[in-house]
Design a protein around this nucleic acid. Sequence first.
RNA 1: GUCUUGUUAGCUCAGCUGGUAGAGCACGUCACUUUUAAUGAUGUGGCCGAUGGUUCGAAUCCAUCACAGGACACCA
Length: 507
Amino acid sequence: MAFENKLIQQRIEKAKILKDAGYNPYANDNARSTTIKKYLYVNSDIEEKENKRDEKRHYCVSGRIKFFRMMGKASFIKIEDESGMLQIYVARDNLAEGFYNDFFKKHFEVGDIVEVGGFPFITGQGELSLHATEVKMLTKAISPLPEKFHGVTDKEIRYRKRYLDLIMNNDARKTFTIRSRVISLTRHFFENKGFLEVETPMMHPIPGGANAKPFVTHHNALGIDRYLRIAPELYLKRLIVGGFEAVFEINRNFRNEGMDATHNPEFTSIEFYWAYKNYKDLIEITKEYFRYLFEHLSLPTILPYGDLEINFDKFSEIPLLESLVTIGEVPPEIIKDKKSIVEYLSARNFPVKAEMTLGQLQGELFDAFVEKKLINPTFITEYPVEISPLARRSDKNLDVTERFELFIAGREISNAFSELNDPVDQYERFKAQVENKDAGDDEAHEMDEDFIEALSYGMAPCAGQGIGMDRLVMLLTNEHSIRDVLLFPAMKPIINEEKVSDEDALI
RNA sequence: GUCUUGUUAGCUCAGCUGGUAGAGCACGUCACUUUUAAUGAUGUGGCCGAUGGUUCGAAUCCAUCACAGGACACCA
């Protein structure tokens, strides 16, 4: 990176002039005495003071210059720190002799980070401002900021240079603040419930806990490959075996799959496991969790999401088969007959493989006709056994599992079930998965004998749940791309053609 | 993966059926001591994403590639 751009050259020159005059353009000592938000709050009484000012008060604030309005012998600038924006009045005669004309006017500009000392007053237009008596450069910005009114709108720039997005777009800052709050509230919610936060390996000898393609990396010292985890599930269950009765982990999972508006190669989820509980208890704690989030985020329970309106007061619960009929409008007489389902799906342009099991076909019906219609939060329960390899069978109906998925705005937000704790059954299910893998399904689960051995010591009956945090944040912030809730979403590298040819030349 | 729309100054965008590259903001110079996207005057700034092709002539037409956005299919 060469600073060859003319605008950058100009600004480097300005920094140099300041430096030569004894004003360090990257000053290390600063005297900030308050944030902008506090300044505005503390001085909200200036309205009542004589001349709407109080020269006895003195504050020192700092921030980035966002607006610069120069009017001859005086200027208005607006500076912004994390807490807010403040207008500063800078007049020649209030600064040290010559500083305004020789330095401030010429070498301070939008983008620079400055420190300003002075007293509070209210302008003729009625804005609480700061009357500067000292101005100091803290950091000279040598790249110009994007346009002050439109900011950056180019999605590519916003994702690749998130810092610019954060400088220019208040909404972006707000979204990531909410994201941080959601993670923090989630942690507190489960801690308050007596859950223990744990950290399990991110590098797995056998990728497990989900059906997905893993990233592979290599451990040099051991001379073996490791897999970035696709889910923490099997390690968290080992902890239930070990006697912890309520554990959770909030962290990243990695899946070597496609990217789109709802998928990033690394994403954040919470998984929690709860001994002596079942999936019914999970439904209750999920509702409670949402109430907790909404209360602490001060969100209204009816939230807009794009063109939709989601009522977070209305959680409903419906078994999968019933939803096919009442929501999907699938004729009730066909939903337990493989042949009829295949015909029904094919006739509506949903091709299915002939060898699918009844449970798989019911799942296809659900995906085709029900999922997108689930706008208000809906727990779909009683999933077919065939599509729930890690879930415990229902005692009342052996064809279905004690499982639910939570759908909001037509998207899956959470997956949960009473856990399978019969080691022999689990062994058989892994074996079936291995057969699928040998048959070419590269997302099928691998045999994990170490996990089977753990189960063989006895895992207390328990229920476990995963919630996709990125998608949850999308719902709460009305964002429609996962990239808008990830600070640094995965992007393809930009190939620098000059560099490529340089490297070629070396070879 | 498929389809589709983009890529022009630091940023936001014009540029019609091919004929020497435009605006606003920013920046430079000048004026202005209460402005609110300050204002007025004036000036600098571009290999029009890359590579080929068609043409006397390409930002514009065609092809390929790269990156991005959107939609659809699969996975959280």
